[in-house]
């Protein structure tokens, strides 16, 4: 390759590299180009949803939900404020308002409204919000699990389970007891000791469930402080801790649900 050719290839290649290095660009959740668009009607720099200068609805651009609400990517969030924003935007984007606008604008208002609903539903719920952020930060549970299995296969090393072994043990044991309870009920028998035991377990897990949420809020604070710090390593650490916690929490949520079901039926 000539020297000129080499240099000519350089800018293109570096763009690709930047995109690859940025986890967001790999995610289907976001696409670039959101910041620089102008209003299709009046040419002003547009907002995500509609133009602040002329008020026209804009075609939806794929943005993440935080950006949609013009929020920083933080986990502590003023939900009252979010709610107000949501109602305000719902009103302004309501398809009824555009009944007499042209076809295009009507469609955009519908698309924007449904995007708004998704964004609101995701962000107002503390767990969904956290999970969403983790996905934005490149967490892909299933993909990562599969990759870890493939690696274990190739290297002969053991795959590390994402939840601690003693939690798995507990989950398994409790499921065995639940199965027993269901069997007994089917046969018309009843074992007060087993029921008592399961009640106790349920209380224990409910407490754990609450405690995990408190712990999660601690990580939120850490995350929010780090958001703009550019300290990738520290951010990654908090991210993984949150992921760990949510994984454990998923199991416990299922357990509480299943115990309740088995006790009630």
């Amino acid at each position: 390759m000539s020297r000129a050719g080499h240099w000519a290839a350089q800018p293109g290649a570096s763009v690709v590299n930047v995109l690859m290095a940025n986890p967001e660009s790999k995610s289907s959740l976001i696409m670039p180009g959101e910041a620089t668009s102008t209003c299709w009607s009046c040419g002003t720099m547009r907002a995500v949803h509609f133009c602040s200068a002329c008020g026209k609805v804009q075609p939806p651009v794929p943005v993440n939900y935080f950006t949609f609400f013009a929020l920083p990517r933080k986990l502590n969030l003023d939900t009252a404020l979010l709610e107000r924003e949501f109602y305000e935007l719902s009103r302004k984007l309501h398809p009824d308002l555009y009944a007499r606008a042209d076809q295009q604008e009507q469609e955009w208002s519908m698309e924007q409204s449904s995007l708004l609903n998704d964004a609101y539903r995701t962000l107002k719920d503390p767990i969904k919000r956290t999970e969403y952020l983790l996905r934005l930060e490149g967490v892909e549970l299933e993909e990562q699990s599969k990759t870890a299995t493939e690696k274990a296969r190739a290297t002969g090393e053991v795959k590390k389970q994402v939840v601690p072994p003693d939690l798995l043990e507990e989950v398994f044991e409790l499921n065995m007891q639940l199965e027993e309870l269901r069997m007994q009920k089917k046969m018309g028998e009843d074992d007060p000791a087993l029921i008592e035991e399961l009640r106790k377990q349920k209380l224990k897990f409910e407490e754990k469930y609450e405690a995990l949420f408190e712990e999660l809020k601690g990580y939120w604070n850490q995350w929010d402080k780090l958001v703009d710090s550019g300290d990738e390593e520290a951010r990654g650490k908090v991210r993984d801790q949150m992921l760990d916690l949510l994984n454990r929490r998923n199991y416990i949520r299922n357990l509480v649900r299943d115990v309740n079901e088995a006790l009630e039926n």
Binding site: L141, S145, Q161, L246, N250, Y251, R253
Partner: peptide, 10 residues
């Protein structure tokens, strides 16, 4: 003993 946290199965 293994689990899949995505779905909570063991």
């Amino acid at each position: 003993l293994v689990g899949a946290p995505e779905c909570g199965d063991v």
